[in-house]
C-alpha cells in the first residue's frame, strides 16, 4: 500500500518581495521528505467556518531539508494568491502536501545540456533547477521571457549566476536600453541565439502561460528539436 501524501503544517519564516505583486515565501515544514527541482506542492487554506481552498504551486528552492520556498504571483481575481501575497505574515501557518509530479523535473545526474525557457512566473520551477545545479558540470541556458524589467524575479541571484549558466532576458513589452533586443514575444531567432542547437540534444523545460508554452514548443519543433525531449508546464489564464 502506498502511503498517502500527508498534509503538513508549514510555518512562514521569511518573506522576500520579488516584484510589487509577487513574493517568495519561505516555509519551515517539519517532516518534509525532500523534493526534486520542478516538482510542486498543494497548498490548503482553511477559513474559520471550515471552508478550505487548495491550489498548486511550484517549489522555488532546491532540496534543502525542511525548508520549502514558494514564489507566488498575485492573480487579480484569485482566491488563494491574494492571501499568500498580501495577508500571510511571518509566523503564520498554512498546510501543504507534496512533493507532487515526477515528470517536469530535472535530475541532477542527467548529462545533456539543459535549456530552460520560462515565461513570467514560469521561471519558478526553472529557478529550482538552477539552484539544484550546484557544482554539476551540466551546462545550462535560461531564456527568461518577461513583460518588462519590473517583473523580474530573483534579480540579484540571476545577476550572480556562476559559470556554466547563461541567462538571456526576452522582454515582451518594454526592454531596457541596453537589452540588445527589441521588445517582443519569443521568436525562433531567440532560440537560435540563446538556446542550444538541436544536434546537442538538450533536455528542454518550458514553463509559462499556455500561449507562451504553445508558441515556444512549436518553435522548438520547427527548429528540429525532438518533441520527446521537450517537457512543458502550462498555467491557464485561471490561477490561484
Amino acid at each position: 500500500m502506498i502511503r498517502r501524501l500527508a498534509w503538513r503544517v508549514a510555518t512562514l519564516t521569511e518573506i522576500r518581495q520579488e516584484t510589487p505583486t509577487a513574493r517568495t515565501l519561505v516555509f519551515d515544514v517539519p517532516g518534509w521528505p525532500g523534493h526534486l527541482p520542478g516538482q510542486h506542492v498543494d497548498v490548503k487554506l482553511t477559513a474559520g467556518d471550515g471552508y478550505s481552498a487548495q491550489r498548486s504551486y511550484s517549489v522555488a528552492n532546491g532540496d534543502d531539508g525542511e525548508r520549502v520556498e514558494l514564489t507566488v504571483q498575485l492573480v487579480g481575481d484569485g482566491e488563494v494568491s491574494p492571501y499568500l501575497t498580501e495577508v500571510l505574515e511571518v509566523g503564520d501557518q498554512i498546510e501543504l502536501r507534496g512533493p507532487v509530479g515526477g515528470w517536469f523535473v530535472w535530475r541532477p545526474h542527467s548529462s545533456p545540456p539543459v535549456l530552460l525557457i520560462g515565461g513570467g512566473s514560469g521561471i519558478v520551477p526553472l529557478m529550482a533547477m538552477i539552484r539544484s545545479r550546484g557544482k554539476s558540470d551540466t551546462p545550462f541556458r535560461l531564456l527568461y521571457s518577461l513583460r518588462d524589467p519590473g517583473q523580474l524575479f530573483y534579480a540579484r541571484e540571476l545577476e550572480k549566476v556562476t559559470a556554466g549558466i547563461e541567462v538571456a532576458y526576452l522582454y515582451t513589452r518594454t526592454a531596457p536600453p541596453d537589452a540588445g533586443r527589441a521588445a517582443g514575444r519569443i521568436r525562433a531567432a531567440d532560440l537560435v541565439a540563446y538556446g542550444w542547437p538541436p544536434d546537442t540534444a538538450p533536455d528542454v523545460f518550458v514553463c509559462g502561460p499556455t500561449g507562451f508554452v504553445e508558441a515556444t514548443a512549436d518553435l522548438l519543433i520547427e527548429l528540429g528539436h525532438d518533441p520527446a525531449k521537450i517537457k512543458t508546464e502550462r498555467f491557464g489564464p485561471t490561477g490561484g
Binding site: S52, Q54, F104, A217, D218, I221, T232, G236, P237, T238
Partner: peptide, 18 residues
C-alpha cells in the same frame, strides 16, 4: 472536494501539442 469553479478552459499537457 478540493475543487474550484472556472469559466475559461485551462490547458494542461506534459509536452508539445502534436
Amino acid at each position: 472536494p478540493g475543487q474550484y469553479l472556472v469559466h475559461d478552459f485551462p490547458v494542461l499537457s506534459a509536452g508539445p501539442t502534436p
